[in-house]
Each structure stands twice: as C-alpha cells, then as structure tokens.
Design a protein around this nucleic acid. Structure first.
Length: 797
RNA sequence: GGGCAAGUGGUGGAAUGGCAUACACGAAGGACUUAAAAUCCUUUGGCCGUAAGGUCGUGAGGGUUCAACUCCCUCCUUGCCCACCA
C-alpha cells in the first residue's frame, strides 16, 4: 500500500480543527512556552520563505507540546500597508475588501501546510479592534512627550500630487508617471525612540540567545560614539561653527571645514562674497537630490568654496570653509572638520579641489603628503601636533580632548547614530493618528473614550491629488474635543511598523477590550520564548518592538524589559544560487509542491536540506528524496515483528537522545538524518510495534499528517498530539566494548576493540603488540603515548 | 567604505581539537519484472595498485598542538545587512 497524502492530509487537518487541539490555555501544572513566528503581510499567496519560516516554528511548537509544555503558537496578519492601496487603485476595489480576501486565501494556504496555530487568537492589524490600541499607545506616548511633530521632507510627485515611498522612486522619477520627484517639507509625527537609546544599547547584553550578527547590527544602528565637539570661529565675526569628531587626534591636520548645503550659517557666510551666486546654485541642485543618491559612494564628491574662513582653535590657523553634498545636515552638527591625510573621503575631496594637507600621524609607509595614494586611517605617533608630538595617537586622543575642554575650545561628547522615528504616512490604509487641529486650542489629542478613530469605509482611490483620507469630508471635519469649535482631523496614518511593534503582546489576550493587552495574561505568557523570522527585520522591527516593550515597562504594564528571549533568523530560499523572487522569475510555488507531494514532504525537505540559519538551495530532486523516505517509513508498518532485536532497541535509544538534543537546538537536518539511520536499521532487522511507535512520535512534528495516520493504523484512539515525547534509557547507551583508533604520529594505522574500562597499562601492552603497527614502530624510539579514553591512541615516535 | 557570515566529494550538507565526507541527492552495477516504473541490495573523494595497501585531500599561505575542517595570523573569493554616520 502506498501512502496517499491527499486524503490523509485533508482528513487530519479537518480532525485537528474539529477537536480544537491547538488552543492555548493558561495552565498551572505545565511550564509555558510561547513560540512566535513573524506574522506575514497578507499578500494572498504564501511563498517558500513563509513555508520555511513557519515550518521551523511549527516543528518547534509540536515538539514542545509533546514534551509537555503549555504552548502558545498564534498567527495573525500585518494587514495595513501600501500594496492594498495600490490594488484598490488598479482593480477598483477597496483596500479593506481586498485585504480580507487576501487573508482568507492565505489562511487556507497555511492550513494546507498543517501548521498548528491557535486560530482563536488570530488578529489583523487593520481591524479597528486592533488599531484602536495603536491609537491608545500613541496617546500615552503623546502624554509623555514621546510623540511630537516636526518638519521633515518626503518624496513628492508634483504631477500625481502624492508622496512616494523610496521604492516608488525609480531613477529619480515617479514610478507611475515618471515625473521628476521633488523633496517636500511636511509637518510630521515622530516617536522619541532616542529617549531609550541607552537602555536599547545596554540591554543587548541580556540577549544571550540572539544571533551575534543581529546584536552587532542593532549596536551599530544605535551607534554610540565618544568624541569631541570642537568650536571653529569664523574669521569675519565671532560666530562659532561646532563640528563633532571621533578623531580629535587628527585635529592639527584639519586643513579645511565643510558645511552641509542646508547648514543655517551658509547664507550668512557667503553674503557679499564673489562666490555667492555659485554657492546658491549649488545649494539648489543639492536640495533636489535624494538623500540616498547623495549617499551613494560611487558619486563624485561635489562642493564649492564659500569665500569665508574659520580659525582652527588648536593652532590658530585660517582654514577655508567649503560647502559639499557629502556632508549631511541630519548627522552630527551638519559640519565637519576635514583631515585629508587621515580620512579617505576628505582625501578624495582635497585631491579633487587641490586643498592643503598635513600629516599628523606617522605611518610606516608614506612620510610625504605628495606620495600618499590614500588617507592613512590607522594608528601611529603624533607629528606636527604641537606639544602632543611623540605621543601615540590613542594617548593623544585623550590628552587633546582634555586639554581642549580645559581651554574652552572643545567639549567631550557622546554622539548617537540613532534618530527619532518618523511614523507619519500620507496614506489611507493605516491607523489614523488620533489628533485634531483646532484653530483655538492647537494640537488636541482625541480623548481615550472616543477611540477608535475609525477609517472611513468609503474613500476615493485615484492615486492622485493627495491622501484619499483628506478627501473624505466627514472624516476631516471634526469638532475640537476641548472647545467644540470647528477643527480639522489629522489625515496622516501611522507607519505599519507601529502595528507590528506590540502584536506579540496582543496575542496573549487578543479579544481584550480594556486595553492593548491584559496584564495578567501577558505576565503569564511573555516574554516570547522563541521568536523566528527573517534577517531583514534584524534592525527596525526588532528595535521598535524592544522600544515598545520598554515603554510598557515604564507604564507599569509589564515587568520585563525585553520581549524576545531567543531569536532565530532563518536563511533565504535560493534557486540556482539566487534568492527566489518575483522579479528574477525563479519562484517555486509551494502550492504546486503540496499538490504533487503533499505538505509533509515539503516540510521534511525544507528542514532536511539545510540548517535553519543558512541559505537553502531549492532542489526538486531533494523533494523526491523526502517523499521516498516517507514511503519507506510507511512500509515498515506492513511488516512489524513480534519483538525487536536488542541491537535495534539500542539504536532506538541512541536516536531518541540525538533527536531530542537536535530538536532543542533547532538542528532539524541532523535530527532527520538520525531518524533515517534508525529507519535503515529497522530495514536491516525488522521492528516491533513499540519501537516503530517511538519513531512515529519523533517524526510527527515534521510530518504531522503522515504520522497521525500511522498512529491510528497502529491502533491508537487518541491523536498523536496527546502522546509523550520518548525518553531514552542511558543504561542502554553504554557499550561494553569500544573501538579505539590507533595513530602513529597523528596518522591512523590501526584499530583495536577493547573493554571500555580497560586499564592504561593493559591497553598499552595490547597496542604495542599490534602486528599492523610493526612496520611503523620498528627500530624507532617511542617518544610519547597519548590516550584519549574510549576514543583514540596516538603513538609519537 | 563599515559590520557580520560562509568557503568541505559531481550536488545539498555532517563532523567545532581526536577515524574528514554522517544522512541524503545524483551516478554505476545487481535482484524482482515480458518490459518499464516503483521497491530492495551493493559500490561511489582524487591518484597509484588486480588486491592488500599506500598516498594526497576541507579557498590559499603561515603558525600553535602528540593531533587542526575546527584555534591564531595574513590573504583571496562569495553572500547578507548597513552606509559620505564625521
């Protein structure tokens, strides 16, 4: 009999659903385990990346259930976002209808994979019962001054009169009409994540079970740097230009300074100078450029001389002030001191514009400015640095900083790379920001009891003429909550990262109406024991989630400071060495694999082909292999013996040990390998029902439908989900005889089987008598005799 | 430019100081079959050898060690993430 996956998978999916076997409930007598995979954007179709992510999670969830944990394994939808709006424009539908349709389809696809979710806890961020609490959280942040308004630029298409996301700007033009994109300044909402920078950095140390890679990326993103703020005075008047540097040891080599084109002092210093016109033209040009074009490394560094000079405070030297687009107003003070000899960007710029250079740190290579091919950014001895000559630059860094602070020409400072988080989006399909603008009272928050501010169901979608929300009169026109006079409602919505920054808490009590989550439930389930998702979220999503958690901690709503105890970032799915993607046209549709081989085969292949963290190369022949293995296991049931050989029982216990360890560490590929070995052993000697049952239980997290069916065939009345994870008997793993390898000078020359507790002396005698060794040992003095118990002997001659 | 990974048979990968290539794919041969598929069994890193066996071999080079895929140093290549971040 062949294993007919179609009927079997359908049968058990129905059965699990009817018996509600995946619902999580609080329980006093079992330890809890909260397992979470990053929830998807409901595009309507799952791809192999989803399949991999959710298979890894599902196996872990099923494994923990069998081990006796009380498991929470929820799923939901990150449902707001631009694609729904674009679909509405294109297909003349509504984002709401489109999104819910997609959710429906996608849920069916997830169910076809046999994932063990507690669907009673399903949430969709686009439902007002969810985004209500986005608005509530926003108000709490507003109350505490953590949400504020400030002007910031957006990509703007003047023809469509709409804002554009970075990815909608193609070669500087609008993706729809190709009109040149402009930068437009708008008042927008920010969250003051920078208030949490120290804690966000410090608490990274708690995250012992996060990949080092992610910790490093978060650390770099927060970007703490110690340096000195240096005051350069203008030569013409006494105005000060502060610059920040982490390399104060190079200050004596600062031969010019550079201001960002947007720097507030630019207009003043060029006034009346012959260069004025040229500079103004340059500023206009720079303003049109997108920031990330300006940031591209292959673009030539452009700049103009301002006509003014500043004084280098350490040596009273006059240095020219330049304006250049490679300095950004958003970073540091919007001005830099340039040290061409010891900073590569400055070096290139100085060469291009023939600016002065001076070496202040001696390197082993070039002593002469003329023959420098590139900047020297390494360590060395100070030269041309006044009283600091002769010191190592690392020492000088400290001494110079202290001296400058004493002289009042600099200040030791800590700078951070982290910026506040811009959450305003000029879009319809997102959470409305609960704010009203009153002509008398100004910015007024919507009172808590008036939440949620609901998205109007009918809004016009044309893709032109500004935000659709702004065109719905009933929405925009509001009365001021304070004075009841005519007011205008905020029409910006929140970035969707806001929604996903706390959904893991919502899953603890998804239907709670008294707040974002029930504190008692969160206290029981949180923190998430294991979080699983793609590396692309290593920075933003994880950082924001950590920020929100700390905010809830400050509100006294949770007692912990980090949301995710362990993190696993799964690798990408490749085909022919390239990431599977629509644009490359190398997609393999999970649905077609389910149709041809079944979900269990797909799950098995995904886990066997590579360890979870590494890239996975899609191989259709590998799918065949996985399918063959399941059928091989299937056939065992047709030929069960009365009693297994003791040899096989030992093999079983060895497998139990290995598989348990590997499942715990997410090493599914080697776990499967040992299940295959056990299967091969069963083919050699035949197995009884007892041994086979244990194999089926161990395989069931990976191939759940398949194992349920076998479990039933084996005569069990209850679902395999109620079974217990097998335990191994350590006494069966102890071997009396061990095979030891004998090496001569590190090369294997022979093997010997001995009693595992053999005495050193006896072993030595036995080994030296070994005839195979005589050609190697003859007439050579024995220098050393190394024994690694139960493993190996190395004879050194 | 910065950060982080990774580099092992024809292929995916295993071994993280102690027998390199577990497990699988592919390939070759055999059994069953009228035949094919499926299945089962055997072989399968290179070179020399009929064989026993020898020898080389984990991106390159050096080092530590009785012993290195594994640890250290230098370099090369690829991938991912971030980036004129001062």
């Amino acid at each position: 009999m062949q294993y007919s996956f179609k009927e079997v998978e359908k049968k058990w999916q129905k059965n699990w659903q009817e018996k509600k076997l995946f619902l999580a409930q609080g329980s006093a007598d079992k330890p809890k385990y909260y397992l979470l995979e990053m929830f998807p954007y409901p595009s309507g179709k799952i791809h192999m990346g989803h399949v991999r992510n959710y298979t890894i999670g599902d196996v872990a969830a099923r494994f923990r259930r069998l081990q006796g944990y009380n498991v929470l394994h929820p799923m939901g939808w990150d449902a707001f976002g631009q694609p729904a709006e674009n679909a509405a424009i294109k297909n003349k539908t509504k984002p709401d209808l489109w999104t819910h349709k997609c959710i429906e389809w996608m849920k069916l696809e997830l169910e076809k994979m046999g994932f063990s979710y507690d669907w009673n806890r399903e949430v969709a961020t686009c439902d007002s019962s969810y985004y209500h609490w986005n608005q509530w959280i926003f108000l709490k942040m507003f109350e505490r001054g953590l949400a504020y308004r400030k002007a910031s630029s957006v990509n703007w298409c003047p023809s469509c009169e709409t804002t554009l996301a970075n990815e909608e700007v193609i070669d500087g033009g609008c993706w729809r009409c190709h009109t040149a994109v402009e930068q437009k300044n708008l008042e927008q909402w920010f969250l003051k994540i920078t208030d949490y920078k120290e804690r966000l950095l410090e608490d990274l140390q708690q995250l012992k079970n996060w990949p080092d890679k992610v910790l490093a990326m978060q650390g770099n993103w927060i970007g703490k740097s110690q340096g000195v703020q240096i005051y350069f005075r203008l030569k013409d008047n006494n105005k000060v230009i502060p610059v920040f540097t982490t390399r104060v040891d190079t200050i004596f080599g600062a031969t010019y300074i550079v201001l960002a084109p947007e720097h507030p002092l630019v207009k003043e210093i060029i006034q009346g100078k012959p260069q004025e016109k040229e500079v103004l033209k340059f500023i206009q040009k720079a303003a049109k450029e997108k920031k990330n074009i300006r940031a591209a490394s292959d673009v030539k560094k452009e700049g103009v001389f301002s006509g003014s000079y500043a004084i280098n405070p350490v040596n009273r030297e006059e240095v020219p002030i330049w304006i250049a687009d490679y300095v950004l107003m958003e970073y540091g003070t919007g001005a830099i001191m340039a040290v061409p000899t010891h900073d590569q960007r400055d070096f290139l710029f100085a060469k291009e514009h023939r600016l002065a250079m001076r070496i202040v740190i001696r390197s082993t290579s070039s002593q002469d400015v003329e023959d420098m091919a590139e900047a020297y950014e390494g360590d060395g001895e100070q030269v041309n640095s006044g009283e600091f000559d002769g010191l190592s630059n690392q020492e000088a860094k400290i001494k110079i900083a202290e001296w400058m602070e004493k002289e009042g020409i600099g200040k030791i400072e800590t700078h951070w790379r982290l910026r506040d988080w811009l959450i305003s989006r000029q879009r319809y399909w997102g959470t409305p920001i609960p704010i009203v603008y009153c002509s008398k009272c100004g910015v007024v928050p919507v009172p808590e009891q008036d939440l949620p501010v609901k998205l109007p169901a009918d809004a016009p979608f044309t893709g032109e003429g500004g935000s659709p929300l702004g065109k719905v009169k009933e929405f925009v026109n509001a009365s001021c909550p304070k004075c009841k006079s005519v007011a205008r409602r905020e029409t910006d919505t929140m970035a969707t990262f806001f929604d996903s920054s706390w959904y893991f808490l919502r899953f603890c009590s998804p239907k709670f109406i008294g707040g974002p989550f029930e504190e008692k439930e969160a206290a029981y389930w949180m923190p998430v024991n294991q979080y699983i998702g793609g590396i692309e979220h290593a920075i933003l999503h994880l950082l924001y989630s950590r920020f929100f958690t700390k905010f809830f901690q400050d509100l006294g709503m949770v007692k912990f400071s980090e949301p995710f105890e362990r993190l696993l970032t799964q690798g990408m799915v490749l085909k022919d060495g390239e990431v599977m993607s629509k644009s490359r046209g190398n997609i393999v549709d999970p649905d077609s694999i389910i149709k041809d081989y079944g979900a269990d085969t797909l799950r098995l292949f995904m886990l066997f082909a590579a360890p979870p963290e590494t890239e996975l190369e899609w191989d259709s022949r590998g799918i065949e292999g996985a399918f063959k293995f399941l059928n091989r296991v299937w056939r065992i049931q047709e030929n069960l013996k009365e009693k297994s050989d003791p040899q096989l029982v030992r093999a079983l216990h060895k497998a139990i040990k290995k598989v348990t360890e590997d499942f715990t560490d997410f090493k599914f590929n080697t776990a499967i390998a040992s299940l295959m070995e056990l299967t091969n052993a069963i083919y050699q000697s035949g197995a009884d029902k007892e041994v086979f049952s244990q194999l089926v239980i161990m395989l069931s997290p990976i191939a759940p439908h398949f194992c349920e069916e076998l479990w039933e065939i084996l005569g069990n009345k209850e679902s395999i989900l109620t079974a217990s994870w097998p335990k191994f008997d350590p006494s069966l793993l102890v071997e009396e005889k061990v095979t030891m390898v004998i090496q001569v000078n590190g090369k294997v020359r022979s093997k010997i089987e001995v009693d595992q507790n053999i005495a050193q002396e006896e072993l030595r005698e036995l080994v030296l008598k070994d005839a195979k060794l005589t050609p190697w040992l003859e007439n050579k003095p024995l220098k050393n005799f190394i024994v690694v118990p139960k493993k190996l002997i190395n004879i050194v001659i």
